[in-house]
Design a protein around this nucleic acid. Structure first.
Lengths: 198, 198
DNA sequence: GACCCTTATTGGCAGCCTGCCAATAGGCTA
DNA sequence: TAGCCTATTGGCAGGCTGCCAATAAGGGTC
């Protein structure tokens, strides 16, 4: 029978990636406490001590996973403004919904911990990612990304968006079209009737 | 020096409450893993074993704390419909914002874990509480609480509300008036332009 | 192609945390 | 005041985490 090499020496980057992939899977299935480092190491096919070597401790590994997951949306290249406000709003919503494939839905709706069981560091990571997305949306609809209040309002809109996405892709209580309608009308109202009044 | 009674025999209800209060405080300060049962027991002035006696295990105690926190909003007696739609919407928003005193903000914006680090049980508790609130809002604005899609849309609105509340009471990036404006206009739009189209 | 040397990788030790259970004693009742 | 029910305690056993010194994979060098 084929004897699997007991030790395999990989480049730090490869090994890191391998561990992160396994951790991503396990942490997505069960809550933090329920996943032991022993299990994480086994899933990655590695000695437990290697986790500490690469990430410091369990918590740091977890934060790394959250960091990667939070940034998934690929807030990159979306065609900037063009057309009427209605069209631009529609484009922004489309981008938001489009960046969510069902498989990634789990990660994208990440809102992690708030309130009881809150975790300042996790919160900070997510806030950063959400703020980035809010800034992008504000640009798309022709707002001023530098306006703190406007940005805050759009960040709040982001919560609505993640809520709608969850209703659609996880609970199945809204169709994608319904979610789109909800977000389009809401965002339009926010841009037209709320932002000017802040 | 006054010798504090080494053992004090309380009624189960009192002891339970005493432990829950201490746990509430600690869990609000630091994430679950960071709080040890030893610490919880010390904070409650009780032997560690008593926690298990009353709640089973640490997780169960935590869930109990979350359960109580999630239900805080006192979704009880709010004057039902009256006046124009605009007025009813305003009343609903007022109720949502009013049920949030700064001290309780921490608990009320509880959205707990989603995605990475998700916890099915915590999720279920919060979903239940949020759905209850959504049903109440739907009643207030004259919608049909039995309409699943409408309820889902309003649940999503609840996320917007919690987001706005956080921007206001925690981040301080929105004033209460601004948060109110954002929620009022959004909810009005949802009722007028979204619900009919679901 | 064989040897070396850097460093990726391992395995086990020490401390802490958690759940469990039998022993203890507080305080109400008769 | 004596007795009993049961609230409360303390310590044991197993598991998990972080740390560190020992080990060997495999690319570079001659």
């Amino acid at each position: 029978m084929s004897e699997v090499a007991r030790r395999q020496r990989l480049s730090p980057d490869q090994r890191r990636e391998q561990i992160l992939l396994a951790a991503e899977r396990l942490f997505a299935e069960r809550p933090y406490v329920e996943v032991s480092t022993t299990e994480l190491a086994a899933a990655a096919g590695v000695a437990r001590g290697l986790l500490n070597h690469y990430f410091g401790d369990k918590r740091a590994l977890y934060l790394e996973v959250v960091r990667r997951a939070a940034l998934l949306p690929e807030i990159g290249d979306v065609a900037l403004p063009a057309g009427s406000l209605a069209e631009r709003v529609d484009a922004a919503v489309h981008w938001f919904l489009g960046s969510i494939t069902p498989e990634r839905a789990t990660y994208l709706t990440v809102g992690a911990a708030e309130g009881i069981g809150d975790d300042a560091e996790v919160r900070a990571i997510l806030d950063g990612a959400h703020d980035l997305a809010a800034g992008r949306v504000l640009e798309l609809v022709g707002g001023d990304p530098a306006d703190a209040a406007a940005r805050a309002a759009v960040r709040a809109f982001g919560e609505l968006a993640r809520g709608a996405i969850r209703e659609w892709s996880r609970a199945g209580t809204l169709t994608r079209e319904q979610a789109h309608l909800l977000l389009r009308e809401s965002l339009l109202t926010i841009v037209q009737r709320v932002l000017p009044g802040l």
